[in-house]
Design a protein around this nucleic acid. Structure first.
Lengths: 189, 189
DNA sequence: TTTACTGTACCGTCTGGACGGTCTTGTCAA
DNA sequence: TTGACAAGACCGTCCAGACGGTACAGTAAA
């Protein structure tokens, strides 16, 4: 029963995310994470020698997962429209009722520098999209709107109804696919 | 030198925001705020009996200021286009290099419930805009994009260049000034 | 034997907050 | 005008508790 071997890391990471979501970002203590993960505090510190390392693990896992999801989504819908793929993927992410990354608040509270990897990731992503999208205006509007959706999900303050969210995503996809006139007035949805 | 009388509250609130921005949201301790505000800890606790009350004061002040700014902006540009007014106001807010509300992270870390007033405020704002905007699609896209801009500013991860931001705002204003104005029956309450 | 833990005991630091004291200002009777 | 007194605004100290982290002995699988 004892030695869980190997996958303790993942369990700890998941437990940390759970604790942050359920007990609030300020209550992410090592003790709480350890007991939630079914691991002793010693065991936790064995896998992550400091709290900062734990946070770092959270960030890296998040970025890795996201990049991977984006890659597979892009290869499935190959070459057609990377912006549209990004919109769909993000919209699906934000569909989840439970904010997937509320541990970010814990990380920021711990040390704002934990955001830098995320920032650079986002910057690279944006630059890539800029290179792959013909119309800058469309990109800006869509990217920012998705960022807004993400923000809402993160803060757990979903103002939109299901219909509205679907309409939004449809509008964004429309804007993303029509380079030039995004004055979508005449065409009914 | 001692008795600052009366405006200590404002000074403390400003100091708290400064500390949160400069020392990181996790380092917002009462001692730090007190020393920053040029007030003793006892004096701080006199004005705000608990840390929670301090946070509450921060939230209320923020909401009050924002509502006021929105009101004056709307009365200056009367009746024309509330969505456009909101866009312009928010864009100006986000122009500031220093995130105006990074104390929010402190508040969330302290207790996620501090977000509820902000959430309800945003919900009301959105509903109001919905009542005042003819085209739902335009509203959704613009509102979310602004939310994205806010998010970026808050996280201090500005991906956009100055030109890009201006182009974005221009695009949003263009979208906001939707061509069909018939649907606006009884916009006033 | 090594790896991967468990469990316990412990330490130093930091933090919110309670408490009692102090200075300032306003009020009002004499 | 003055002196007594109350209330308001603020200071400085102290403390219990929580937290991150260390140290170390034990244990079970590979």
């Amino acid at each position: 029963m004892r030695a869980q071997r190997r996958n303790s890391r993942e369990k700890i990471l998941a437990a940390a995310a759970d604790v942050a979501r359920e007990s609030g970002p300020g209550s992410l203590s090592l003790d709480a994470v350890a007991s939630r993960a079914g691991v002793s505090k010693g065991g936790l510190l064995y896998n992550f020698p400091t709290k900062a390392k734990l946070m770092q693990g959270l960030v890296e896992g998040y970025l890795r997962d996201f990049e991977q999801a984006l890659e597979t989504a892009n290869s499935n819908d190959d070459g057609k429209n990377p912006l549209a793929v990004y919109i769909r993927l993000s919209a699906d992410d934000c569909e989840e009722k439970r904010p997937s990354a509320s541990w970010i608040f814990s990380a920021i509270a711990e040390d704002p520098d934990f955001m830098t990897p995320i920032k650079t990731f986002k910057r690279q992503l944006f630059e890539r999209l800029k290179g792959e999208t013909s119309d800058l205006k469309s990109l800006l509007v869509c990217y920012l709107a998705i960022e807004g959706l993400r923000s809402m999900n993160l803060f757990d303050s979903d103002v939109l109804s299901k219909d509205e969210r679907e309409l939004l995503v449809a509008s964004l996809l429309e804007i993303a696919s029509s380079p030039d006139a995004h004055q979508a007035s005449g065409t009914q949805s």
